[in-house]
Design a protein around this nucleic acid. Structure first.
Length: 925
RNA sequence: GCGGAUGUGGUGAAAUUGGUAGACACGCUAGACUUAGGAUCUAGUGCCGUGAGGUGUGUGGGUUCGACUCCCUCCAUCCGCACCA
């Protein structure tokens, strides 16, 4: 009986389900291991072959670790709040929950077919009230905390209030933008509204008027990472800047810890770099410049305080608050019109137009804090209001933009670098020594920076300072299908509801659109629609997509806990995610937010680790391979690919299901579309029609979407699993190509024949003495597969399996002991296949994954001779077999005595002979 | 512009501390077998050359007995960030 994958796979899938084979318990023996996939958003389209790549990899690792005796947590769930379901709801009136559940069912079906060992008892869905109850609870904790810069962690807001009551806010070292001071008695005199307004300046989850990315098309605000090139990440709609009262997360407070934490985790350099870049730390110094004829001082931020004597002008952002007051009369109109045109320029224009230099002189002067010189103050849009202080001290000799600006407007450039020419451009490298800089003369850059900060601090002119580019994250969305906030308003003061009232469930609404007044959809719900209503009104916004995904990995540990988001006991047991697999597109979104929440929960003592994901692998994207047929213009005649030369043809996408190894299925093609029914073809010489191909992103319109379903139908899940792993290194992006899948399928069939005869029963026998060659093959494979899996080189394992099967076949190996061990090696990749054979060779049904992983034994690999490559000047010329017991000298003389050696020496005497026992002999001529 | 990654046959790719470049597959060529199959088996397959042999890991250089691997230069592709003071 041939390998009947359909029967086998459906049998084992139901067996595992019925027996709860993959349910995980905290009480099982073995060290814990937590393997996690990024949970999917269940879209209507279902999975294509690219999605499971990461899931298969994590499943292989999970099963491998299980076999090694680890207690493996390998859960799956759904990030089920999101825009598509809501937009579908707007169009059809169907509740998003209905669509979402339908999609989840389809996902589950597809996932089940692939034979994953998820513990479905632990499934989470971010949109289920049992889950978002705890998302709301975590929000409450964030609301109730501030970031203490002294203890460098989140603390309860009650502690802050205590300090306010004792000494006011003068001595408080907390993360805030609030710059006014008040005394204890001031505080006590404030009314509740005023107190809350101030507290909002400190809370980690806070309400504030802030500039937000507003997308009118989607009718909602977006986080910075959801905006790509000035357009929305989803849908590509234009995004504007708008000031709105919004919930935000004070992630900025964690900048430094988020940065430092990267050093402790095993992620790729590129991903860490992306996060470092996003956090954007720059160390420098703030310097305040007094103004000529004004009381005010302008503060600038610089990373190069050493160049302070090179300052020849100052530039403010057009939006800088002082511009209006300091501008002199005769410059007013120019300044005003510049400000106007700058404000009209969209962010996008400002970004794309980097080269042109523009700016206007305000006519005002600043006083150089050290030299006392008068310095012109300009405004220009290359200075950004949102970064630093919105003002820069311009050092044209050391900064290219300042240099260009000075040249353009004919401002003097002072050179403060010793022996360095700046005729051509600024000296931007951090090299050389200073001149014309008073106490900084002859110092190098790093010495100068240190010295400058010290002196500026001594004289009270400046202060060492670190800036981060990371912005606080906007946390409200004007949408329906998201977590409601556990917040109500009383006299416009936001208050959180009691824990006992959680979850605040999504109320029913008559429509999922905003109200006429532009309020979010939740404003449509009347009082009775809410399961809990308090105060004057509930919060109408909902949370963003990243709320639920910032902590889901914790819920898997304790998914049914009704009293806590996760018990301390459980989170202590499972700890960090040991291996996290998912796409790199979440670099500055999910992966940053999840780290932030983890650190917060750690600060508050709810969990004992402050980095969620110890190791992270980004699986590459699988691209589609489109197929083309070539039509002669205005005809129904199609020319095979190799016959089109010199012809004017029209390339047309053809559905890839009609193409096998670039051969077109002619009948299928004729039936594909009505207009092709009577198509005629010009074939290759061998009578086939060959299609062209191109690598593109998978998309419906290109007819290049490959669903796993079809392939499972055709070859089985085990083949697909092996094939996706065989394709190449997991991190690499690659085009999907079905070409090689038959090779992998044939491998499984060949392997099957090693175990089963034509009647389908086992042909293996117990041998007193296994063949040496077979033992060698087995142990070679054990070694290789273990090493490869331990470094996540999943593709090379498949090759090893193939080599082993080829060798076993050649050896006609029918040794029960050997073949049984091989089955365990292969099991993580082809679980159904191996379980079936495991049973056939006489093991108890379904016990494969409780088996002991084979142990590598070096003694089976010991050889007494070796085929030495003999090379001349590093080039291998021939091989010769020698005993491994030979000494270096013996080996050398035996090699020199060989006929072939003499031939290659061609009469010359070797200058030197390198002998590396067991490796190589190299003769230098 | 800055940062990161990647360049190896017709294709996907191997080569873990420098030691036989191209394992394993796909594809292709030739053959065997057969109630013609998307089956199985055998042989071959980097390039040039009939051959001996030469040559070959993006380019050019270097270190070394020996370099896909280490160092420097340049080029190309992909990804991320981008007037960040």
């Amino acid at each position: 009986m041939e390998y009947n994958f359909r029967e086998i796979e459906s049998k084992w899938i139901s067996f595992w389900k019925a027996n709860g084979s993959y349910n995980v318990s905290e009480n099982s023996p073995g060290e814990k291991y937590y393997v996690l996939d990024m949970f999917p958003y269940p879209s209507g389209a279902g999975l294509h072959v690219g999605h499971p790549l990461g899931y298969i990899a994590s499943d292989v690792i999970a099963r491998y670790k299980k076999l090694l005796g680890y207690n493996v947590l390998h859960p799956m769930g759904y990030d089920s709040f999101g825009l598509p379901a809501e937009q579908y709801a707007i169009q059809t009136g169907q509740h998003p929950a209905v669509t979402t559940n339908k999609n989840i069912e389809r996902y589950r079906d597809q996932l089940d077919q692939l034979g994953f060992c998820y513990d479905w008892e632990r499934e989470v869905r971010t949109s289920s009230p049992e889950y978002y109850k705890w998302t709301q609870w975590i929000f409450k904790q964030l609301f109730d905390c501030y970031y203490d810069k002294e203890s460098k962690q989140a603390e309860r807001i009650s502690k802050l209030i205590e300090q306010f009551e004792l000494t006011g806010n003068a001595n408080v070292k907390a993360e805030t933008e609030f710059d006014k001071t008040f005394s204890a008695s001031d505080w006590k005199g404030f009314d509740n509204a005023k107190k809350e307004t101030i507290l909002q300046e400190y809370r980690l989850a806070y309400l504030a008027e802030s500039w937000v990315n507003w997308c009118p098309e989607l009718g909602t605000v977006l986080a910075n990472d959801e905006v790509v090139n000035g357009k929305s990440e989803r849908g590509g709609h234009p995004v504007l800047q708008k000031k709105m009262r919004q919930w935000s997360m004070r992630i900025k407070a964690y900048s430094e810890r988020l940065l430092q934490g990267l050093n402790e985790i095993d992620w790729t350099d590129s991903l860490k770099e992306q996060q470092r870049n996003w956090i954007g730390k720059s160390v420098g110094c703030s310097v305040s410049f007094s103004l000529d004829n004004h009381d005010k001082k302008i503060e600038v931020f610089t990373t190069r305080p050493d160049t302070i004597y090179g300052v020849s002008f100052m530039v403010l952002a057009p939006e800088h608050p002082y511009v209006k007051e300091i501008t002199t009369q005769n410059n007013t109109s120019a300044v005003k019109s510049y400000q106007e045109s700058a404000s009209k320029k969209s962010e996008r224009d400002r970004q794309s137009d980097v080269k042109s230099i523009s700016g206007v002189n305000t006519g005002a002067f600043a006083i150089h804090p050290l030299s006392g010189e008068k310095i012109e103050i300009w405004i220009a849009d290359y200075v950004l209001a949102s970064y630093g202080t919105g003002a820069v001290m311009a050092v044209p000799c050391g900064d290219q933009r300042d240099y260009d600006f000075a040249k353009h407007f004919g401002i003097a450039i002072k050179n403060i670098f010793k022996d360095i020419e700046i005729e051509e451009g600024a000296h931007t490298e951090k090299t050389g020594t200073l001149k014309g800089s008073d106490f900084l003369n002859n110092l190098t850059v790093s010495e100068g920076i240190k010295k400058a900060i010290t002196v500026l601090e001594e004289r009270g002119i400046g202060k060492g300072k670190t800036n981060y580019r990371l912005r606080d994250a906007v946390f409200s969305r004007q949408r329906y299908w998201g977590e409601p906030f556990p917040v109500y308003y009383e006299n416009d003061i936001p208050k959180t509801v009691d824990d006992a009232q959680l979850p605040i469930e999504l109320p029913k609404v008559d429509s999922y659109l905003p109200t006429k007044d532009g309020e979010p959809p939740l404003a449509r719900a009347d009082k009775s629609a809410w399961n809990h209503f308090e105060g004057d009104r509930m919060e109408f916004n909902t949370m963003p997509g990243w709320a639920g995904s910032s902590w889901y990995f914790l819920r898997y540990m304790d998914p049914k806990n009704l009293n806590e988001f996760v018990s301390k006991e459980r989170s202590d047991y499972w700890g960090q995610v040991d291996l996290y697999i998912g796409g790199a597109e979440h670099a500055t979104g999910h992966l940053l937010y999840a780290r932030f929440w983890t650190k917060f929960l750690f600060d508050q003592g709810y969990i004992s680790f402050d980095e969620p994901f110890k190791k992270l692998i980004n699986q590459g994207m699988i691209l589609g391979k489109s197929s083309f047929v070539y039509r002669l213009p205005d005809t129904n005649t199609f020319i095979s690919k190799n016959k089109i030369e010199g012809q004017n043809v029209q390339a047309i996408h053809v559905d890839i299901s009609l193409v096998e190894n670039n051969h077109l299925n002619i009948d299928g093609f004729k039936n594909w579309r009505k207009e092709y029914r009577n198509a005629t073809f010009i074939y290759e010489d061998d009578g086939a029609y060959i299609c062209g191909d191109e690598v593109e992103k998978m998309s419906k319109s290109k007819y290049n979407v490959q669903t796993p379903d079809e392939l499972i139908q055709k070859y089985g899940a085990d083949t697909l699993r092996l094939y996706e792993m065989f394709l190449g290194p997991i991190e690499q992006s690659k085009p999907w190509d079905t070409k090689g899948i038959s090779g992998v399928h044939n491998f499984l069939r060949k392997c099957w024949r090693l175990y089963c005869g034509p009647d389908g029963s086992s042909i293996l026998q117990f041998q007193q003495e296994p063949k040496k060659a077979s033992l060698k093959t087995l142990h070679k494979t054990i070694k290789k597969v273990r090493e490869d899996l331990d470094r996540f080189s999943l593709n090379t394992c498949v090759s090893s399996f193939m080599i082993a099967v080829n060798e076993f076949t050649e050896q006609k190996c029918n040794d029960l002991e050997v073949m049984q061990q091989f089955l365990i090696l292969l099991a993580p990749y082809a679980p159904h296949f191996c379980e079936e054979l495991w049973m056939k060779i006489g093991k108890e049904e379904g016990t494969l994954f409780t088996a002991k992983y084979p142990v590598f034994d070096q003694s089976h690999l010991v050889e007494d001779s070796f085929d030495y490559p003999i090379s001349f000047n590093g080039k291998m010329r021939f091989k010769a077999n020698f005993s491994l017991s030979l000494s270096r000298d013996e080996l050398q003389s035996q090699v020199e005595a060989l006929e072939l050696t003499k031939k290659w020496l061609d009469g010359k005497t070797p200058k030197k002979v390198i002998v590396v026992p067991g490796k190589i002999v190299n003769i230098v001529v």
